[in-house]
């Protein structure tokens, strides 16, 4: 992920630098992330339907198509779409059960919601000229904070003050424990940051790099065939990243939930 961010930053600087000097090489890799009103050109209020609204709505539509329309048959021998829906269901359910334990299953619907939202937002964002909601810090921070706050509340509700034993490493020597506790608390509080920046950074970096390569292809004329191969290669990587980031976000959620339900080391 760090590599991606570096690449993205380099690409952005590269594009901007050239955009100054040569009009033909004006690449704007970040324009694709702009939030714009769907209708008209007015200011963006909190309720204005924007391209973010559109692509989140399309993600909902895709989820409905797979999970509701796809399972319409309720067949014992599933159709292809029902099989996919069951696969996704079984995959996340098993992950929650294996990582966070059986008592985490009541939270499975929300974890599955987050997984499907990120997965479909990521995949839909791979359509050219689309908008990627998950590339925005605003979105991923809310997703991560929801997990962080819920997990902390669940931890205290389920364990009371015993939840604090998560920070008290009882296997360490007594003198070290206060120091470790401080480190543990800091690492605990940093969780939502890494949780959200990982997702937004990976998606943003990948898409920016794609845009930069595409800009080269447009600017280089006939020689532009070379960057097209770069675009193809990175696009393949991005498909992988789209799925992996959804997976990573979900499994980290499960890990945090496990800490809340079973805080004792």
């Amino acid at each position: 992920m760090v590599a991606y961010v570096l690449i993205a930053v380099a690409a952005v600087l590269f594009g901007l630098a050239y955009a100054d000097g040569y009009g033909s090489l004006a690449i704007h890799p970040m324009d694709q992330f702009e939030v714009k009103p769907l209708f008209g050109d007015g200011p963006i209020h909190w309720y204005t339907p924007t391209n973010a609204t559109l692509w989140m709505g399309l993600a909902i539509a895709a989820i409905v198509a797979l999970m509701v329309m796809g399972t319409k048959g309720r067949a014992v021998i599933p159709s292809r779409s029902q099989s996919m829906a069951e696969l996704a269901y079984g995959f996340i359910r098993k992950m929650v059960e294996d990582v966070a334990g059986k008592d985490a299953l009541p939270y499975f619907p929300y974890i599955f919601t987050a997984f499907l939202f990120i997965l479909f937002a990521n995949f839909l964002a791979l359509i050219p000229t689309s908008f990627s909601p998950t590339s925005h810090i605003a979105v991923t921070v809310i997703l991560a904070l929801t997990v962080f706050i819920s997990v902390t509340v669940i931890g205290f509700v389920k364990n009371g003050a015993g939840f604090l034993s998560l920070f008290w490493v009882s296997s360490a020597p007594l003198v070290l424990r206060p120091v470790l506790a401080i480190i543990e608390v800091i690492s605990y509080c940093v969780r939502p940051v890494s949780h959200s920046v990982r997702l937004a950074g990976a998606v943003m970096a990948g898409h920016a790099v794609l845009k930069v390569f595409a800009g080269f292809a447009g600017a280089l004329g006939l020689a532009g065939i070379a960057p097209v191969f770069g675009v193809i290669a990175i696009y393949g990587l991005e498909v992988l990243v789209a799925a992996i980031q959804a997976y990573v976000f979900t499994i980290l959620t499960c890990v945090y939930l496990k800490d809340a339900l079973h805080p004792h080391h």
Binding site: V35, H45, W46, Y47, M67, F112, F117
Partner: peptide, 25 residues
């Protein structure tokens, strides 16, 4: 643009959550 994105994200998540927990799951 944050209030806008956050608002629509919450709407989306709530919608997906209810679709999943009431129908699909």
């Amino acid at each position: 643009t944050f209030p806008n994105q956050i608002f629509w994200l919450v709407v989306s998540l709530v919608a997906i959550y209810f679709i999943l927990s009431r129908v699909a799951l």
